[in-house]
């Protein structure tokens, strides 16, 4: 069985409906009306031990709700979850011993005592043997550079340092699974890279399973082989990152630089099916096409016959472009399941 098994997991929230204005406010006092909002809608997922999975989706798609259910702090409306053989919300304490969590927008550090004191408190809370604590702390200190600020209070350290300390706090008790909810939010590129390096190394050396939600596509590219996209509470893609770009990032743009103006080129090219041409100036042309229907060679061949090309380059869509289009609804991914199973 997989480490995390999720079957038909659903969460609906009850939302109060208030009519606008003062009258609506009074009416709500007397007569409450509610609507159901489905935050997570029958999702299925299996995550194996040692995987690093990116859990991606626009704001309000249901990412955090899923994570909260997996960690056991939110009770599902229906469906099943088992994490390492445990139903998280039924045995919350037991589950809490095996997981680490970082919510990028929150901290679990004590604000007014040195960082190391929070870590030693966590040692006691998790009832860690002294030797294991020592070993893990040394490992984390080295990878995250904790000694720079370990003896400062959390109030005094920078956001990047705070995040490093929070990661140390989440990984300290050797959890089997770590959930990272936007761990790189608001951080500069140097800190981001350090954190990504850390996550990779922990995953490799300790085999910690990592589930990560993020809006930072660099995080995904750097860390995760598998990506799960959720939108409107449904999983719309689950598979390898490379598979997604191969299958859905088919669009290319060819940019041509012409030596001499060629007014007919635009019209000529427009005749080829499945391409869109836009002329930027007399000597510059951009051709957008779908790799599945026509190759770059054919387009280049066609333009060579009518114009004098001095230079050209080809743009491939970036992964964030693909995901952005998925969010926008202009790209419809067929549901693919079991990509990692």
């Amino acid at each position: 069985m997989s480490l995390i098994e999720v079957r038909a997991l659903t969460k609906t929230y009850r939302q109060a409906v208030r009519q606008p204005g003062l009258r609506g406010a009074f009416r709500h006092l007397v007569h409450q009306r509610y609507t159901e909002r489905v935050a997570v809608d029958h999702i299925d997922m299996s995550i194996e031990r040692g995987e690093t999975v990116a859990y991606v989706g626009p704001n309000g798609a249901g990412k955090s709700t899923t994570i909260k259910m997996l960690t056991g702090i939110l009770v599902p409306t229906s469906g099943e979850i088992t994490v390492d053989g445990i139903v998280p919300h039924k045995r919350r304490m037991e589950n809490a011993r095996r997981i680490g969590v970082v919510f990028g927008q929150r901290t679990q550090l004590w604000w007014d005592i040195p960082v190391i004191e929070t870590l030693s408190l966590l040692r006691d809370i998790h009832e860690m043997p002294a030797q294991e604590y020592r070993k893990n702390l040394d490992f984390l200190t080295e990878l995250l550079g904790l000694d720079e600020f370990m003896h400062l209070t959390a109030r005094r350290i920078s956001l990047g340092q705070r995040m490093r300390a929070d990661l140390a706090a989440a990984f300290l008790h050797s959890p089997a699974i770590v959930y990272l909810d936007e761990p790189t939010i608001g951080l500069d590129i140097a800190v981001k890279e350090r954190i990504r390096g850390f996550i990779k190394q922990v995953n490799r050396e300790l085999g910690t399973t990592v589930m990560l939600t993020t809006h930072d596509l660099g995080d995904i590219q750097d860390l995760c082989r598998r990506i799960v996209i959720i939108d409107h509470g449904r999983i719309i893609f689950d598979g390898a990152l490379a598979e997604m770009t191969d299958a859905f990032a088919r669009e290319r743009v060819l940019h041509f630089q012409l030596r001499t103006p060629c007014p007919t080129a635009e019209q000529e090219l427009q005749r080829i099916p499945n391409v869109t041409v836009s002329g930027l100036s007399d000597t510059e042309l951009s051709v957008r096409f779908d790799r599945a229907f026509i190759s770059a060679r054919d387009i280049t061949g066609a333009i060579m016959q009518i114009a004098d090309v001095s230079d050209f380059r080809i743009d491939e869509p970036s992964i964030d472009h693909v995901i952005k289009r998925v969010y926008d609804g202009t790209l419809n991914l067929a549901v693919r399941k079991g990509g990692g199973a």
């Binding site: 909260k68 960690t71 056991g72 702090i73 919350r92 304490m93 809490a96 969590v101 919510f103 809370i125």
Partner: peptide, 12 residues
């Protein structure tokens, strides 16, 4: 402030 959720994530 909702940090009660963080407390629920600890064996305490």
């Amino acid at each position: 402030d909702g940090s009660v959720a963080m407390e629920l994530l600890k064996p305490i």
